[in-house]
């Protein structure tokens, strides 16, 4: 079963083509990292996959069905989305914000109040935000807000996760925890697409890497296949060196002088 499929996906505004003919298949159980320089079209791609933007050409399928034909309420049972920059001054407390992630399940006849409470509790746990449950969201730090928003996404419990920079403003320890939680989501048969800037985090945790440049996919495949010195150096316009990670089974990407 495929979680999300993009076919010749294109998005143009005026003269600029932000996403240009992207073909992408992300299956259930797969964690795909989307990387690339600023302005490569990564966030636009997430917006298209989420159904926020209407493609200029091509289309998106969610769980094998054309996204354009799925009602917005049903869509929320299929995919959860973390935006790069959400609203910061939310007046609700953290528990209420995470509980909003359960809103789509009002349409699910099998959902129970217990399931809602359990899902919220688990999501808080998994993002290490349980101790913030009573705090007003607006008073949190940037990293805490990212984690709480991610908790809301986990609580939504959708088979497809579309995450735009889920590790923004996180310290190293929290970044590791969040990355392994995303990997865990994939292990329980979710399709996870995450835009990441930390190439080494992508190299270790992702099953597959999609490298974007100027709106198109420049390279795609397992981390060792995509994180190659000449490709990265060219795409980022920055000399890069790649060595074997001394103790993790993945490449280690370094900036060369």
């Amino acid at each position: 079963m495929t979680g999300v499929t993009a076919r010749a996906l294109t998005y143009a505004v005026g003269n600029a083509t932000l996403v240009d003919g992207v073909d992408l298949v992300v299956s259930d159980g797969e964690f795909v990292a989307v990387v690339g320089p600023n302005g490569a079209g990564k966030s636009t791609l997430i917006g298209l996959l989420a159904g926020d933007l209407r493609p200029s050409a091509g289309g998106v399928e969610l769980l094998g069905e054309d996204l354009a034909g799925v009602p917005v309420g049903e869509l929320a049972l299929r995919r959860a989305v973390l935006k790069e920059q959400g609203v910061a001054d939310i007046p609700f407390d953290v528990r209420a914000v995470v509980a909003m992630g359960r809103y789509p399940h009002r349409l699910d006849p099998n959902n129970t109040q217990l399931a809602d409470i359990t899902a919220v509790g688990e999501a808080l746990d998994r993002t290490s935000t349980s101790h913030l449950a009573g705090r007003v969201f607006a008073t949190l730090s940037g990293g805490e807000r990212t984690r709480v928003s991610l908790a809301r996404v986990f609580a939504q419990d959708a088979p497809v996760l579309l995450l735009d920079e889920p590790t923004t403003a996180l310290d190293v320890a929290h970044q590791e925890r969040v990355m392994s939680q995303m990997q865990f989501e994939a292990r329980r048969e979710r399709a996870v697409v995450a835009v990441l800037h930390d190439l080494n985090a992508a190299a270790y945790y992702a099953d597959r890497v999609v490298l974007m440049a100027e709106g198109s996919i420049r390279a795609e495949g397992p981390p060792r296949g995509v994180f190659v010195e000449n490709i990265l150096s060219e795409v980022y316009r920055q000399r890069m060196r790649i060595i074997d990670h001394p103790f993790r089974d993945c490449p280690l990407i370094l900036v060369a002088d």
Binding site: A50, D52, V72, G73, E74, L75, A76, L77, R79, A80, V81, K83, G86, V87, I90, P91, F92, V97, M100, G101, Y103, P104, L107, R152, Q156
Partner: peptide
Amino acid sequence: ALGESEARHLG
């Protein structure tokens, strides 16, 4: 309160 696009993401 989460923002318009987040409200849409939640159905």
